[in-house]
Simulated scan of single mutants.
Amino acid sequence: MIVGDSISHGAEGDYTWRYRIWQWLQSNNVPVDFVGPYKGTNPPDDITPPSPPSTEPRTFGGYALDAEPFDSDHFAVWGRQAAQDKDQIAAHITTYMPDHLLIELGFNDLGWFVSGPEGTLESMKSLVDNARAVKPDLKFAIANVPQRSHLGGRDDLPIITDQYNELLVKAIPEWSTDISPIKLVKFREEYSCEPEACPAGYDGLHPNALGEYEIARAFSIALQPDYAPGGSSLAVPAVIPPRPCPAPVNVKATTGSGSVIVTWDGVYGAFNYDVQTRVGADGAWTDPSTLSSAPRWEYWPVTDGMTYAYRLRAGCGDALRSEWSEVVSVVAHA
């Protein structure tokens, strides 16, 4: 069972590293059954009006369109912390009785002020203990925490990330037992992401297609002696095709009471959208504004009788944008 946060959960249109490790296991003829309460990725934002937040994780997003069907069961949720999962893990071990836990957690504990290095280590130890209380012979592969591109106001993050990773290296041999061994997964070392640059991430942290391979490779190195003796760890391809990122289509602009509403067909796998506005026939395009992943935007205030034009492009990562859509315009009614 894979236990993780957004890095393991993935967003709609991702392959995910879970898919890549499944491929590696298949290539080594390992009869593996992934288990867990969820199957999908994180879907795009809703376009419905705001409503009270749901306690159920959003895990119904799809995978890359050319990914072959795979055993996608998992226990990975966007935003999840070790501090949360330590209290939930026993119930899922009871339900699914996995033989092996692959754990990728800790960034949110450190990154969102949940706990420092020592507290995050305590949460991870509690997770291990609570899982073992249900299944004493459970095997573990626990990943350390990656670096990310520089986050404003968090100059401490690279420091405490390395401090946690150092503590984890020392703790794992102490936690490991003969019947319940623990392997360290060197996620941080295999992942091409540093405060200065993050070629493995589409937003400075979350894995793009390269990053998915690199995380899967890190886990394969830890698992190879048990799962593929005589085989080799996963190799990262030399050439990785870019994420598909077509321009939005079916863009429409309608005028309402004091505003203009722009809608379009969502681009599968887009993380967000950029929009530009032009006011009047001779106006200049505004600088792009980045929107959420919901295919709807409302612009206000507007001037009665004025013509407003709009165009959009899909955002498929920091460095990947689609071409601009066709321009649509509307005469506003205030």
Rank of each mutant, 00 (worst) to 15 (best):
I2L: 09
G4V: 01
D5G: 05
S6H: 04
S8Y: 02
S27W: 09
V32K: 11
D33G: 01
V35L: 11
V35F: 08
P37C: 06
G40T: 11
P44C: 13
P50V: 10
P57A: 09
T59M: 05
L65C: 10
E68D: 15
E68M: 11
F70K: 05
D87L: 01
I93M: 01
I93E: 00
T94E: 15
M97L: 11
P98D: 03
H100M: 12
L102D: 03
E104S: 11
G106H: 00
F107G: 07
W112K: 06
V114S: 03
G116L: 08
T120Y: 00
T120G: 05
S123E: 01
M124V: 01
M124T: 01
S126G: 03
V128Q: 03
N130W: 03
P136S: 12
K139H: 09
P146C: 03
P146T: 02
R148G: 08
R148N: 06
S149T: 09
L151D: 09
L151K: 07
R154L: 03
D162N: 13
Q163Y: 04
N165V: 06
E174K: 14
W175L: 13
S180C: 05
P181K: 07
I182Y: 00
R188W: 14
Y191L: 06
S192D: 04
S192Q: 08
A197V: 06
A197K: 07
Y202D: 00
D203T: 15
D203K: 10
P207C: 11
P207A: 10
N208A: 07
L210R: 14
E212W: 01
R217A: 14
F219A: 13
F219C: 12
A222W: 01
P225Y: 05
G230L: 12
V236W: 12
V239P: 03
V239H: 15
P246K: 04
A247R: 15
P248A: 10
V249K: 05
T254D: 13
T254A: 08
T254C: 06
S259K: 13
V260Q: 01
D265R: 05
D274T: 02
V275Q: 15
V275P: 10
V275W: 15
R278L: 07
A281P: 11
P288S: 15
S289G: 10
L291N: 11
S293C: 06
P295M: 06
Y299S: 07
Y299I: 10
W300A: 15
D304E: 13
M306E: 15
Y308S: 10
L312G: 07
W324S: 00
S325Y: 13
V330K: 02
